[in-house]
Every structure is written in C-alpha cells, then in structure tokens.
C-alpha cells in the first residue's frame, strides 16, 4: 500500500495552525475526520493520545507521526500537515517539529497499519525529502512530492 494512495488532498495542510503538541494533534484529527471513513472521532482521538502516552511519536529531525488503531474508522485514514511554526512536540531528540503525519488504522487490520508506519518513518528519515516538503506551497504539490518520492522508494 502506498502513502499517496491513502492520503487525500483535503487531508493535507501546508500552514497548520497551533501552538502546542495537543493543539496540533487535535487539528490533524479534525482534518482526517472529514473523511467518511472516520466513524467515531472520539475513538480516534483517544487511540491517538493513548499511543502518545506510551512513547512520544516525535521520532526526531522535526518529524512526528501520531498514530493509533481503533474500530472508530472503517479503513486506514491519514492526514499530513506542515506546521506554521515550530512546535515543541516533546520529541525524543528535543528538537521542534514542523512535519506531522497522522495515521489511523483499523483495529483488525494491523498488518497494513504497521507496514505504512514503517514506510512513512523510512521516507521521512531522508533530509532532502523533508526539505522539499517544507518549501512546497500547496497540498497538491505535497501529494505530488510524496508520489515522486514513493516512486523512487519502491525502486530501492
């Protein structure tokens, strides 16, 4: 499964507003909840924050990947945001976060969920890819950037 297949343009924001980790995550949940696949927003929220309690998903280098599994979604849904300002996300490397990818998986489809997690965290570890995403100006261009990157990624 490709990231560009599940990420919808309306779930991408290039100027995400918010001052704290919590505000940013909540904004991302609002974003993803526009999808009809989200059946229960509260379940999604509690799954995301529960997971965050276990270990911060700010995995370093300015990137965070809040995620969770719940039966409050009908299928895997995702959202991506570039924050308007650097956010203190309590990241493991203590650096502020600019890029946030939210992934909500279905409770009983764990395989695809963890595969996507690993794919996203792999892609986002590339510095030049992160820099590209930081300068792109529209959701459409962000999706295009993902598409190109995944095309070369699958050739790995």
């Amino acid at each position: 499964m490709k990231i560009s297949d599940i990420l919808e343009e309306k779930a991408v924001v290039v100027n995400l507003q918010g001052n704290s980790k919590e505000q940013i995550i909540n904004a991302m949940i609002e974003l993803v909840s526009q999808s009809p696949k989200v059946l229960d927003k509260d379940k999604v929220r509690s799954a995301i924050f529960e997971r965050e309690k276990i270990m911060s998903t700010g995995v370093g280098n300015g990137f965070a990947i809040p995620h969770g599994k719940t039966d409050g979604v009908a299928d895997i849904v995702a959202a991506f945001g570039v924050t308007a300002q650097p956010i203190d996300y309590q990241s493991l490397d203590e650096k502020p976060v600019r890029l946030v990818f939210l992934l909500v998986g279905k409770d009983n489809l764990v395989g695809p969920h963890i595969k996507l997690l690993s794919r996203i965290s792999r892609l986002m570890n590339k510095e030049d890819f992160r820099n590209k995403l930081l300068v792109v100006q529209s959701p459409k261009d962000i999706l295009e950037t993902f598409r190109q990157e995944e095309a070369s990624y699958s050739e790995l």
Binding site: M55, T57, G60, N61, D93, V110, H113, I114
Partner: peptide
C-alpha cells in the same frame, strides 16, 4: 483481528504487543 503475529493481550498478564518506531537519532 489480523496480525502478522497473533497475540491476545487478555491472556497474558499485563503484557501487550505494541508498535514502536526507532527514532531517527
């Protein structure tokens, strides 16, 4: 529930299967 590996957390004592991402740094 479909897992590449099956595990029922209700069976173990306080044991859970969780996914963690290795931080970049």
């Amino acid at each position: 529930r479909w897992y590449p590996i099956e595990f029922e957390s209700r069976i173990g004592i306080d044991t859970d299967l969780i996914e963690l991402i290795v931080p970049y740094t």
